[in-house]
């Protein structure tokens, strides 16, 4: 601690922090939340079954788009340009790395895991445990600057997920179609509230007055953007719940509640 709060000429206080509140709780909850998702999503992605309900046209977002010949009949909404895959490759392998990259480089998730996983810093005015720090100035973290490219791919995937959800309505309406639709709406909320989106839509302009339409877009996205953290967590939850629902129906553990 001789480099930070213990540096020469600073007030001699040996405690790492004098905070008296439960500052360790938010990073702990973040770790638990992220861990839950990583374990669930990992397990489901590699499971290779119960991802498609043929009868009602439900496809879980974790397997969308399903583009290989290993995909169950009907689940490949965009054809099967890819050959059969060995069992250890997740069927959603085309989109999954990009979606993972999108969330990993997301400005909100960065804040979340820098604070919780990496403890840099664990909470404000709580000394971090690392001896040196270079932030996002060099590799590997400089790669975070590529966030916007993941955003572009995420836009495409959102369109695909929308298509998947819409397709389920051609089989009638069940609770599953509503689950898929809610998930897609929230995914759009998360994707459009992205800081890169806010920048691209209009934030980068110096003269809003010369671009009234983009100014309007920036204003709207700014309103969504303040909810980005909430949307980040909500969509983690809805992704898991949506997948869980499809899994339960596909495996026959429950039957879908049908309205029409």
């Amino acid at each position: 601690m001789t480099s930070g709060v213990g540096a020469p000429r600073r007030a001699r206080i040996s405690a790492r922090t004098l905070r008296t509140d439960r500052w360790w709780l938010p990073p702990l909850l973040t770790n638990l939340g992220l861990l839950t998702f990583v374990v669930y999503a990992g397990a489901r992605s590699f499971m290779g079954k119960w991802y498609w309900v043929e009868e009602y046209g439900y496809l879980t977002p974790f397997y969308s788009p399903c583009l290989s010949e290993s995909c169950l009949p009907g689940s490949s909404h965009f054809g099967t340009p890819l050959p059969e895959l060995p069992g250890w490759i997740p069927l959603g392998f085309v989109a999954l790395p990009f979606l993972l990259g999108f969330r990993l480089t997301c400005y909100y998730y960065r804040k979340a895991y820098y604070r919780s996983v990496w403890q840099s810093p664990p909470a404000c005015a709580v000394a971090e445990p690392h001896g040196s720090y270079s932030g996002e100035t060099r590799l590997p973290l400089i790669v975070q600057n590529a966030h916007r490219y993941f955003f572009y791919v995420a836009l495409v995937v959102s369109v695909i997920n929308t298509y998947d959800a819409a397709l389920s309505f051609t089989h009638g309406v069940g609770l599953g179609s509503l689950v898929l639709t809610t998930n897609v709406i929230l995914l759009w909320g998360y994707t459009l509230s992205c800081h890169s989106c806010r920048h691209i839509a209009g934030g980068r302009l110096k003269h809003f007055s010369k671009h009234p339409v983009r100014y309007r877009a920036w204003t709207l996205i700014s309103k969504l953007n303040v909810r980005h953290m909430q949307l980040a967590w909500t969509t983690l939850a809805t992704l898991m719940l949506t997948d869980l629902y499809v899994m339960l129906v596909a495996s026959g553990a429950i039957s879908d509640l049908r309205f029409f």
Partner: peptide, 25 residues
């Protein structure tokens, strides 16, 4: 590049300026 957008500046600003969201990002 050193800033890792962990938002402590925003958290403590007595003027409530959204430093991270509106300036740094």
């Amino acid at each position: 590049g050193y800033c890792n957008i962990t938002k402590c500046c925003t958290e403590v600003c007595p003027e409530g300026i959204k430093i991270t969201d509106n300036a740094l990002i």
